[in-house]
């Protein structure tokens, strides 16, 4: 039984060896299901796609990529997607921040408002898109209200264009940004702001000097998650957008390559480019995050 008490744990009876030196023990086995899942549903498809993208239907190894970056109907989708995903993400993060900050003190309003703001999660992209089509369409209540109030004389277009997709992304993405930001904001010890106040900091300075620097890493994380979500936009781009024009996003172009042109290798190349763009944006943001303090956000060691 002495081996049970051996440093580093270890399964009873096993000899301490390289596994022990890595700090592995019986508990390490618990990560196996997760590893299998990642291997089967991420690593394998990713590698498969990568290899496939270098085996074009005709031409040399790099022909798919050369074609992607030389034909405007392909490479233009990168900007179109970024042009939708970045503003939607920024809007979400910067909308979530003041609302979460205002709700940082536990109260019954916090619970009510949180519940209301989180409801869109349960709706799903397609339902939100359908709803927006009706509400914001030329005959929807929004336009009629504006006309009744004589704000406008004739309905203007909010659907089947860029604005429609942006609005739908903000509505579906906001709850995630909000919940994430709220958890970061409430994690900051309110005594810190009080201490700053006794030292002469106005509420705005307290926010700028105390809350913002401590929140920055969390906001960067929230930005990345929201960005990745918006970048893969597909249903709302098709339903609410202008799939042939301003909202011809990468996911849509890749879909068309795969299931309309039946050119799987070319679609794989598109997907790889899409992944690379996301990776670049996310690593830039996480790189910036490294500039900020990332330790515990309490006032003491605890």
């Amino acid at each position: 039984m002495s081996s049970l008490a051996a440093p580093g744990g270890g399964i009873a009876g096993s000899k301490p060896g390289w596994r022990a030196s890595l700090g592995w023990d019986g508990t390490t086995l618990l990560i196996l299901p997760a590893v299998c899942f990642v291997l089967a549903f991420f690593v394998f498809p990713c590698l498969y796609g990568l290899v496939l993208s270098f085996m074009p239907l005709k031409g040399g190894v790099f022909d798919n990529y050369i074609r992607f970056f030389s034909e405007s109907r392909f490479y233009s989708t990168i900007w179109k997607t970024l042009l939708i995903a970045l503003p939607a993400t920024l809007a979400n993060v910067f909308l979530a921040l003041p609302i979460a900050f205002a709700l940082r003190k536990t109260s019954r309003y916090q619970r009510i408002v949180t519940a209301i703001l989180v409801v869109p999660i349960t709706l799903g992209t397609v339902l939100v898109a359908q709803g927006l089509l009706g509400y914001l369409g030329p005959n929807g209540w929004f336009m009629r209200l504006l006309m009744t109030l004589h704000v406008i004389d004739a309905p203007f277009r909010l659907t089947h264009n860029y604005t429609g997709v942006l609005l739908s992304l903000i509505i579906t993405g906001f709850p995630f940004s909000f919940l994430l930001t709220l958890s970061y904001v409430t994690g900051i010890d309110p005594m810190l702001a009080k201490a700053a106040a006794t030292l002469g900091a106005s509420p705005w300075t307290q926010f700028k000097q105390i809350y913002l620097p401590l929140l920055a890493p969390g906001l960067a994380m929230g930005f990345c998650l929201a960005f990745v979500q918006s970048f893969a936009v597909f249903p709302s781009a098709v339903l609410l957008g202008e799939p042939a024009g301003t909202t011809r996003v990468m996911a849509l172009a890749v879909y068309q390559l795969a299931y309309e042109d039946y050119n799987a290798p070319m679609a794989a190349a598109g997907a790889m480019v899409m992944g690379a763009v996301q990776l670049i944006v996310v690593s830039c943001v996480l790189g910036l995050r490294g500039l900020f303090y990332r330790g515990p956000v309490g006032g003491t060691k605890g």
Binding site: M191, L192, A195, T198, L199, G200, G298, G299, T300
Partner: peptide, 27 residues
């Protein structure tokens, strides 16, 4: 509180975790 200018030492210290000792004191 910011207009009173009293110094306060908190039970939990409430030091700003992202600032060095020097910055904390100079705040």
């Amino acid at each position: 509180p910011e207009q009173r200018g009293f110094g306060m030492v908190f039970q939990s210290y409430a030091l700003f975790p992202h600032m060095t000792v020097r910055k904390n004191i100079g705040f």
